[in-house]
Design a protein around this nucleic acid. Sequence first.
DNA 1: ACAGCCATGTAACTTGTTACATGATTTT
DNA 2: AAAATCATGTAACAAGTTACATGGCTGT
Lengths: 186, 186
Amino acid sequence: MSVKHALLALLEKPRYGYELRAEFEQRTGASWPLNVGQVYTTLSRLERDGLVEAGGTDAEGRSLYQLTEAGKVEVKGWFDTPVERTQPQRDELAIKLAVAVAVPSVDVGKVVQQQRNATMQALQGYRRQSRSGAGDDLAGGLVLDRLIFAAEAEIRWLDHCESRLRRAASTSTAPEPAESAEGGAR
Amino acid sequence: MSVKHALLALLEKPRYGYELRAEFEQRTGASWPLNVGQVYTTLSRLERDGLVEAGGTDAEGRSLYQLTEAGKVEVKGWFDTPVERTQPQRDELAIKLAVAVAVPSVDVGKVVQQQRNATMQALQGYRRQSRSGAGDDLAGGLVLDRLIFAAEAEIRWLDHCESRLRRAASTSTAPEPAESAEGGAR
DNA sequence: ACAGCCATGTAACTTGTTACATGATTTT
DNA sequence: AAAATCATGTAACAAGTTACATGGCTGT
């Protein structure tokens, strides 16, 4: 729903397809490249759903799209409604680890370590980008910071997983200790 | 790709459809409910792709599914390959804010505040669950912690956004630094 | 008998995504 | 002229998701 709504929101004024991609990529700081084809498929679906309509052509002959009334309502609703976090998006990594701990043939520790390497590398890439002025643009800078914050949290969680897994491994042979008060979550 | 691979991984031993849903939900601590129908649609697609095959019926007459050789390879590959973070998943919230700062009719501060409320509420829900022993199960506990860590990071980022937006707002009344026409990328 | 869960499926749909076709214009 | 970029689109597929149909079995 992100691309769809982002394009809708960018149609605050009439724009043509190629322009929409450029706007999208510029604002998200090229963190999420967008195939041009997807702009057009999305636009035609939006048109089908009555949220967007053709708005003639500009001076250079490029065909413009504009919001319908329903489209304006949709955009307003998108901005007025927070992204649902009470029923959060499936997270592939969490699912993977949750499944891995139950499948005996999988070395969970290795999965965790590999993921930390990968995430660490991504994090360094984000920081390099950030330092090299890719965050000068306000929107792009915020997006980059979002990725950084998320990667940091992911690494902290992976560390947390490791220590819990170590404890679980040692208690699986010994009797269960009444673990309760601890610094981190739970 | 999460559901598909999770089901594949759970098929380490032959199982039937309903069982797969139960396993999935138990391990992810009911954080991500899974419609039973999706289990069957996914299974038939996996069968179509040669990763899974029918494996007879169990004592109670329930039809079992099992991994093919290709399926085993696929599972191994899933666990051996870290979740891609160098080309991260589109994040709806980041996109929303990135677009919002460029659309003058949107009150970005309000969007941020509403999101913080929603995320805060979700976070409290997770903590309540965690305290009420939903994290006794190892896998479920890790998933819950993941959600907690992610929500905390999101809130920190939202705070960070607010302060950057305040700073940007105070400099936007002052004359614009004349170098922005260059277009972000270098 | 009836409600409700167990169990298996199918039809239909949404969003995301890419690969390709086609022509115009611009750059080298 | 050739290559690249601009610009618009289409066909096809992947993955997620839900609503519904169907039948068996269980408890009240």
